[in-house]
Write a protein that binds this DNA or RNA. Structure first.
Length: 599
RNA sequence: GGGGGUGUAGCUCAAUUGGUUAGAGCGCUGCCCUGUCACGGCAGAGGUUACGGGUUCGAGCCCCGCCACUCCCGCCA
């Protein structure tokens, strides 16, 4: 007998119908004479009633002994609940099923943790939840996340399809390309000593697909990076990977704005305004001290370099004299910061190489600060005006090289926002989504230790056309045609227009990155080869699908939107992977393990 | 690799300055209960205080080590 309805389906109009439901025993309330069992399936909950007057003793006794999460099938008549016993908390709360038949499909042992109470279940240690993930995923909150993720994937596919994109799968067994993230290697027994690598992203394949004439490619691509993890980073993750031919940056912006508009509408029924604001890398650092700014709150950075150029306060004027800047930030309402909080902020500053953190507490009409005595009246006036200083404010300074000074205050700005949020002085609407494009990143950074340039994105990123001459004269000033999409301080994705001119690519590889030609050939030969046979101008982007889902689900950890995530150390609590393999397996792969086995 | 946090009953947590037999709620077992919905009531079982050392008359608490989980830095072209 199959079920006739899901557990969310029944309403007063079904009264009188005989129905069959299947699902899990969500909770059991045994009142001695009458017994209630809330039955739960994927869709919802339904109260069933066992009345001994209407039932055989066997059925009633069986029901009495059911544990939570046992799997049952019940058949009975739908009826309206007696007056005054409706339950507004559930959708089916006006009706109940008077059970006639009960079939126990499977008994459940007592649970390692309770899942019937959402508040209690949400507090359970993540270690336990991950070990018993199959139980954790039964919780409606987690089911919601799985369902939303599925809906977002479908919305993405239908939108991309409408826009003329082909979904193309690319290999999981790929070639090792040792730049960037550490790779997972897969031994090849057919040729001992050779290895595949799992892709960090399908970057090279998607560019080659452009050479193949696909013109518009996308994929919900699994990617693998063997790096340390974070709340928003897993060893394996999913990207919405996109590449297009015969386009410029504007086409990418428009496409992704359309996609996100669709996704937000589908998932949250929210209309997000487009186009998104665009901010240059330089402006992002200048105003928010970070290349992925959270613009949902103020406390922007202000430049005081000119005001302190001739200051008698040598910490400031000295930094400026050696080519640095002085920046300040007004942490509104933080004058009451504790010594511990000031210390935390100082530690942030020190982690960037600063000697300390200068600050002013504005309390009781006074500027309390170890440094304010060095300031001239003009300097004080400048601070007061440009920072709009008021009673209760905390002013924080950074005097350093431009990037460092910005990043110090950027870090502190986020810390202050957290503190103010905890104190209830800063509230952010959970439905507010501030999207923006960060553009005009520097194409190259300079590695002092290795004394060479490195690609700040990846080596196929095209320079801004007008900056190409600077490649040979002033590489630092070259801007890349790279863009990041940021929402609420989260880097949702990034991409670039790619280089399709062989001579520019050659300059980047050989002159700037200083990769020897033979090595270039070894690593990227197939790609450069492909580019000799008619490569269209192209570019693309990749969005972090897990992060996207996490934002939509209102969680900061992507583990909450991945069915079976790994722990921070990369283990799976449920399957206990990774694990040792047999000597035979190793022998077949021609692998010798040099680490001593435990025990 | 480094720094912070956490670890006490199946789950969530308590345990005063280092001091009696380590407690509570939920869950579990048994009994009672005919309108509950996190049902209620009574009774009971359940502990290597993550693990290994040390200090002490005495350690859940202090010290050293170690493991796991977690957050962050490094790392993530």
């Amino acid at each position: 007998m199959k079920r006739t309805h899901h557990c969310n389906a029944l309403r007063p109009e079904h009264a009188g119908q005989t129905v069959t439901l299947t699902g899990w025993v969500h909770s059991r309330r045994d009142l001695g004479g009458v017994l209630f069992i809330d039955l739960r399936d994927r869709e919802g909950r339904m109260q069933t009633v066992f009345d001994p007057a209407d039932l055989s003793k066997e059925v009633f006794d069986t029901a009495t002994k059911l544990h939570a999460e046992s799997v049952i099938e019940v058949t009975g008549k739908v009826r309206q609940r007696p007056a005054g016993t409706n339950n507004d908390k559930i959708a089916t709360g006006q009706v109940e099923v008077l059970v006639k038949e009960l079939l126990v499909l499977n008994h459940a042992d007592p649970l390692p943790f309770q899942i019937d109470d959402p508040e209690a279940a949400a507090k359970v240690n993540e270690e336990t939840r991950l070990k018993y993930r199959f139980l954790d995923l039964r919780r409606p909150e987690m089911t919601h996340n799985l369902r939303l993720r599925s809906k977002v994937a479908i919305a993405t596919r239908s939108f991309m399809d409408e826009q003329g994109f082909l979904e193309v799968e690319t290999p999981i067994l790929f070639k090792s390309t040792p730049e960037g993230a550490r790779e997972f290697l897969v031994p090849n027994h057919r040729d001992p000593g050779t290895f595949y690598a799992l892709p960090q992203s399908p970057q090279q394949f998607k560019q080659i697909l452009m050479v193949s004439g696909v013109e518009r490619y996308y994929q919900l691509a699994r990617c693998f990076r063997d790096e340390d993890q974070r709340a928003d980073r897993q060893l394996e993750f999913t990207q919405i990977d996109v590449e297009m031919s015969f386009i410029d940056r504007e086409d990418i912006y428009a496409l992704i704005e359309g996609l996100l508009k669709r996704v937000w509408k589908t998932a949250l029924n929210i209309d997000i305004p487009t186009p998104f604001k665009r901010v240059s890398f330089q402006e992002a650092l200048n105003r928010w001290g970070i290349d992925k700014p959270d613009t949902r709150f103020g406390m922007e950075l202000v430049d005081f370099t000119e005001d302190f150029r001739a200051s008698t306060f040598k910490v400031f004027s000295g930094a400026i004299a050696s080519g640095g800047v002085v920046k300040a930030m007004n942490a509104k309402g933080m004058a009451g910061a504790t010594q511990g909080q000031i210390e935390t902020m100082t530690e942030y500053a020190k982690s960037f190489g600063a000697k300390g953190l200068a600050y002013i507490k504005v309390e009781n009409g006074e500027w309390k600060s170890p440094i304010v005595k060095f300031f001239s009246e003009a300097e004080k006036t400048a601070l007061k005006t440009k920072l709009a200083i008021e009673e209760g404010d905390l002013i924080l300074f950074a005097a350093d090289q431009w990037l460092n000074a910005c990043e110090i205050l950027g870090k502190i700005r986020l810390y202050c926002a957290d503190v103010l949020k905890t104190q209830g002085k800063l509230t952010i609407d959970p439905k507010q989504f501030n999207f923006l494009w960060v553009i005009e990143f520097p194409l190259l950074g300079f590695d002092r230790e290795q004394n060479r340039w490195y690609s700040s994105h990846h080596p196929f990123t095209a320079p801004v056309a007008e900056d190409i001459p600077l490649l040979k004269t002033d590489p630092k000033k070259v801007r890349g045609q790279h863009y990041d999409i940021v929402v609420n301080g989260v880097e949702l994705g990034g991409g670039s227009i790619r280089i399709h001119q062989p001579d520019v690519q050659k300059t980047i590889f050989e002159e700037l990155l200083q990769i020897p030609p033979d090595e270039t050939k070894l690593r990227f030969g197939y790609m450069l080869e492909a580019f000799r046979y008619g490569a269209p101008p192209h570019g693309g982007i990749a969005l972090g699908f897990d992060r996207l889902c996490a934002i939509l689900c209102g969680t900061t950890s992507i583990r909450d939107v991945i069915a079976f995530p790994k722990t921070a150390k990369g283990t799976c609590m449920m399957t206990d992977s990774p694990s040792q393999v047999t000597a035979r397996q190793l022998r077949d792969l021609y692998i010798e393990v040099k680490v001593k086995k435990p025990e």
